[in-house]
């Protein structure tokens, strides 16, 4: 099977590719800079994997995991890690990412992205887990900041400080989800400027943008809306401070037409281009 050499993600806007658009993307090969998919959807073989390999012939692909549970208090799930390693070896993705969250404890798995207290103890756990994943994959992992609906009184540092130290200890990159930060600002009163200042710009390898919804006053990271103006504003501030990076439009529920996603990507691209132009002057 044709397998192009691994390309890095371009410093351009891409889209999250989900099942409703596979056929259209492979049939029309639209001008997408790059795509990101959820790793777990391609564990195993058959139609999902073969579709992804066809996509991979035309676009740089990023694998975004939702199941590794980097902060879980259980032993690493070696089956899950093997499945991811196998997928990486087959697809040769441009990037591999996971979330700064947990999903398993004492025989229970909660298939969600759950927050945890940012303590020194947790840092040790997560750093060990990231080391293990990177060792198994033979490449650096990008770790994404989380959108949270709860916070913990015994956290010893902010999420930004936690990520900075994690990156320094393990060499992992940071996937900066701008919408997650915005949700945390509104929900938990996180200081956006402090977060941006805390994380090392050189470690940031990718941005995410998405829409949220609201539930009884709590903003929920549902990925079912266009990017809101406030999030675009925050993205612009992040671009000014950290610089341009590959940027992804995520949409996972009530998925609209491909043209709508591409329109959102164009908006992100315009902001990346504007920054470029500004630097050129």
């Amino acid at each position: 099977m044709k397998r192009p050499a691994t390309l890095p993600l371009p410093y351009a806007a891409g889209i999250g590719l989900r099942a409703p658009h596979y056929r259209e993307v492979l049939g029309t090969l639209p001008g997408l800079n790059w795509v990101e998919v959820h790793s777990e959807n391609f564990f195993g073989g058959g139609a999902p994997l073969h579709t992804l390999l066809k996509v991979r012939e035309h676009y740089p692909v990023s694998l975004h995991g939702v199941g590794m549970g980097l902060a879980s208090s259980t032993l690493p799930d070696e089956d899950h890690l093997s499945a991811l390693a196998h997928l990486c070896a087959t697809v040769q993705p441009a990037a591999v990412s996971e979330h700064l969250c947990w999903n398993a404890t004492q025989g229970m798995v909660i298939n969600d992205l759950l927050p945890f207290p940012y303590t020194r103890e947790a840092l040790m756990y997560v750093a060990n887990r990231v080391d293990r994943v990177q060792e198994r994959l033979g490449r650096p992992l990008l770790v994404e900041n989380l959108s949270s609906y709860l916070s913990f009184p015994h956290s010893e540092m902010s999420e930004g400080e936690f990520l900075a130290e994690l990156s320094e200890r393990t060499g992992c990159g940071i996937l900066f989800d701008v919408e997650n930060l915005y949700v945390n600002v509104r929900n938990l009163g996180v200081d956006a400027d402090a977060f941006i200042s805390a994380i090392p710009a050189a470690a940031v390898k990718e941005y995410h943008l998405a829409g949220y919804s609201s539930c009884d006053g709590c903003l929920v990271d549902t990925h079912d809306h266009p990017v809101y103006p406030e999030v675009w504003q925050l993205y612009e501030a992040v671009l000014r401070q950290i610089g341009p990076r590959p940027t992804l439009i995520e949409w996972d529920s009530d998925i609209p037409a491909l043209s709508v996603l591409m329109g959102e990507a164009t908006k992100a691209q315009q902001r990346l281009d504007a920054l470029e132009a500004c630097h050129a002057e």
Binding site: S151, H154, N187
Partner: peptide
Amino acid sequence: RVDEGYAKYSAQVAVEVY
């Protein structure tokens, strides 16, 4: 151990979301 109150909602609301 979790923070009880947030600017716009209670911890109970967040627990229900999860």
